[in-house]
Amino acid sequence: MLIRRPADIAPSEITARELFEGRREFIRRAGLGLAAGAALWHGLPAPARAADALPRTVPGPFSIGEPLTKLESAISYNNFYEFGVTKSGPERNAHRMQVRPWTLRVEGLVCKPREFGIEELLKLAPMEERIYRLRCVEAWSMVIPWAGYPLAALLKAVEPLGSAKYVEFVTHYDPAIMNTRQVIEWPYHEGLRLDEALHPLTLLTFGMYGELLPNQNGAPVRIVVPWKYGFKSAKSIVTLRLLEEQPATAWIKQAPQEYGFYANVNPEVSHPRWNQATERRIGEQRRRPTLMFNGYAEQVAQLYQGMDLHKHY
């Protein structure tokens, strides 16, 4: 017989994470408020983060049924070279990044170039939860429940011109809080072909595991392209530019013989450094075979019909 006992602490008794994390800010503001007296009372901003949560999500399409990677692993094992070249560096250092206020500028070959505030972006389309595989070019992988909506929704809002063929993403770069050694070219640039960017799998992402993105995972807004190696999924995006020519990306500039523009997950095309036939799923003992297009061949294979994927790696 299964006896279900209530948890020791009722959910209502737990301080919301946003409030907890905002405690210092709260104390600081309280102090400021006291010192400045009643005159300032009406000028005090509302606690920034409490009101600033991930909107309610609905289950989105394309989610897979594989076990989720532990949250702890997903937030402590990151590639975000601006915050350090080790896997643990981003978790230690990314807190320095201010993610509010944040604007995303959409420019280039669009009818309506403009800036979007993060609050507006969060409400632009219904927020969906999508459980995707994430495959890094370094031959490890995770399964992550993202929260976002198709990038296509944003692109529609700005109306790309007929001449637009590519989308370029530019990551936030602030030398005051980030690595100043030019390990790779900063700010980080990535890009997609427009049809890839408009594909319903391509997710403009704001959250994971039911909460806003942690900074090391690319807060406050990133791209997730699940059929490509992880470095294509640019983090902490500040500019989105529509172009006619294929943009130069950070990794291609770093090592053109190693990284291609497409970077589709492909077990048959091995990288000079890593055999791509298998991968280590974080948390698993043994390697598993890597799937063509990371298991999304059914959805995306037609994008590359007639292309030699050994040449366009």
């Binding site: 532990k70 702890e72 692993s73 997903a74 402590s76 094992y77 896997k87 643990s88 490890w140 280590r280 974080i282 948390g283």
Partner: peptide
Amino acid sequence: GWFANALGANPVE
């Protein structure tokens, strides 16, 4: 570290 599971998300690496 290995036996205490304290080598991070990818202990083999």
